[in-house]
């Protein structure tokens, strides 16, 4: 069953059309990758889903409910978490404060403590640095914090925007391992990545965005062997 359906979505920045009527769906339990070049509209798509940018036309359905006009902050308690591009951790707040803000919509104190323990287990480095301002963490650690913060809301669907951007190769591998783990523990993942090779390797299905439209879509393994994709995105 589709947990997220995007239908004929159109988004504008002023008079410039960034998304030109795209449709795709994410089924419960899948990892779906959106790949494409810079400026293709990947980030815009995610930001429109979580209400940071308004949609001009089209529909976004979550769990069958139309959420196109639902204010973004209400989606968190509905089960959608968004790890934004550039991580956007609260740099002046401590790691712990950041994580607790991730659980902002939850009221169950004890369970929040349990979630916190889980996050620390998954990311031991965050526990070591829990009282440090988030701005003092390295890029990879900030990415882990952004993911941990999103997990604190116990999402059913997690949107991740360029989690590997700007990270060293060691961290990139680690981040992709973490995404696999998050998926394995039952969270559906919609992943936007420029690192198409890595994204396709872990995804079930993928959509290729080109200047605001979906140019290609299909099974991730098949796309990996598609000549067009190989040439344009896998630099082979």
């Amino acid at each position: 069953m589709a947990i997220l359906e995007v239908k004929d979505l159109e988004v504008y920045y002023g008079v410039i059309q960034a998304i030109k009527g795209i449709s795709f769906e994410v089924n419960e339990g899948e990892i779906i990758a959106l790949i494409g070049a810079n400026g293709a509209g990947k980030t815009t798509t995610l930001q429109t889903i979580t209400g940071l940018i308004p949609a001009k036309a089209g529909h976004i359905l979550y769990d069958g409910k139309d959420i196109t006009r639902v204010p973004g902050y209400k989606l968190v308690s509905m089960g959608i978490a968004h790890v934004p591009e550039g991580r956007r951790v609260f740099a002046e707040l401590t790691v712990l404060q950041n994580l607790k803000l991730g659980a902002y919509t939850r009221k169950d104190k004890e369970e929040i403590e349990d979630s916190l323990k889980n996050i620390y287990q998954r990311f031991p480095r965050l526990e070591e640095r829990k009282n440090q301002p988030a701005g003092t963490l390295s890029g990879g650690e900030q990415q882990m914090l952004a993911m941990g913060r999103a997990l604190m809301s116990r999402p059913r669907l997690m949107l991740m925007d360029e989690p590997s951007m700007g990270l060293s190769p060691i961290y990139v591998n680690e981040i992709f391992d973490i995404i696999k783990e998050i998926h394995k523990s039952g969270t559906t993942v919609l992943l936007v990545e420029q690192n198409a090779k890595k994204a396709l390797a872990i995804a079930d299905k993928a959509y290729v965005l080109e200047t605001g439209t979906i140019a290609l879509s299909g099974d991730a393994k098949e796309l990996m062997n598609n000549d067009q994709v190989k040439k344009a995105y896998l630099s082979e």
Partner: peptide, 20 residues
Amino acid sequence: QAMLAVSEDRGAASLMGIDV
């Protein structure tokens, strides 16, 4: 804490479920 979050990054705060 929501006030601190909004003061630092309104968009990220709304992604935490905070009504800005």
